[in-house]
Design a protein around this nucleic acid. Structure first.
Lengths: 108, 108
DNA sequence: TGGTTACGCTACATTATTTGTAGCGTCAAG
DNA sequence: CTTGACGCTACAAATAATGTAGCGTAACCA
């Protein structure tokens, strides 16, 4: 079920965009999909493989939500970030940097 | 069930920290908990309320995972970020900024 | 034209995760 | 010695995700 606007999303009780965002990103696979799209467009089936065989049901559901919210778009080249989505995608790199540091500190 | 190290976590098949991180943050409520802790420590019950009545079962499970990974700690003042966790928490503010822009563009 | 391939999905039964409610044991204050 | 807040645990019910199968479409190419 496509979501028409941000105010109809789960997590939007307060009407605060951050809540909608956290709720969306907090669904399993959403962050992973954003990560996999970080440097090039991928088709539906490429995404399935990259994500380690996420079920098509879930993948489709996440892609639809990301499209409804104009974070990604779909054309002949596959799925890719929108201009706005790319700014969010850039945060993925920050998370990657942080996680490296984190992993090395956890080993101590 | 406490997780001893990063290599035992779901999402760690590749051994890449970013996968463990994305998997953890991708569980429902994890990002929200990080958000709620952004400017002060909160007790278990305060977190329950702030998160809009998340179930204690889930809250405890998330808090345990975040503690196992040394992203938060728990003392007499309540739950709060560790030094490393604070750097991850700082990303929450970035997400908040992004979401404001996002919401205004979606309205067009 | 007919066969093969990749595409983006949908259907649906099984399994895993999350929820909601109730309540327990500990501790400190009054 | 009662009251309140604390951090939880138990467990049945509801919701979300999974895995497998396969559909309809379109492009390629023999």
């Amino acid at each position: 079920m496509p979501v028409k606007n941000i105010n109809q999303a789960r997590g939007s009780a307060t009407g605060r965009p951050i809540m909608v965002l956290l709720d969306m990103l907090g669904k399993r696979w959403t962050l992973r999909i954003m990560w996999e799209l970080r440097d090039r467009p991928l088709t539906f089936r490429e995404l399935q493989k990259q994500c380690g065989d996420i079920s098509p049901t879930t993948l489709n559901s996440r892609l639809r939500e990301l499209r409804d919210f104009e974070i990604i778009s779909h054309d002949t080249g596959g799925y890719s970030y929108t201009a706005l989505g790319a700014e969010l995608g850039a945060q993925m790199t920050k998370l990657d940097n942080w996680s490296s540091k984190w992993a090395s500190e956890l080993d101590n």
